[in-house]
Amino acid sequence: MKALQASTSYSIGFGISRAAPPPRPSGRRHVILAQVEPSEKSVEIMRKFSEQYARKSSTYFCVDKGVTSVVIKGLAEHKDTLGAPLCPCRHYDDKAAEAQQGFWNCPCVPMRERKECHCMLFLTPDNDFAGQEQAITLEEIKETTANM
């Protein structure tokens, strides 16, 4: 059940119970502190998913693999905290509700229907930013996001 997943994962950061309302961080400081690195397990899951989905959809990673790496980490972070790989390239009033609704969970509806990924994870070959690769290693992800 997604709602349970979401609250369970939130409890890692905020330690709230199921009955509590969605966490409202009390200050900006806490928001920043909550932005921790995603778990390696989730990064690996999202990395594999990205490779598979690129092949399946005949799309390619960005010529700048740093972009790909950050997005994969963003998906992993949302998977950790929300229980679903919510698109990291959007702003949401309520992330938990969005993750449960599912429209922007990767692969999002625009991607599945029209191959539109404004996060530039999956690019059609005619896109100016498209590279020629459908593979990315965990090392590449670590390397390109090392200084973040």
Partner: peptide
Amino acid sequence: GFYASWCGPCRM
């Protein structure tokens, strides 16, 4: 420039 924490293209 508005960005989100893990938005790859925002870096570009």
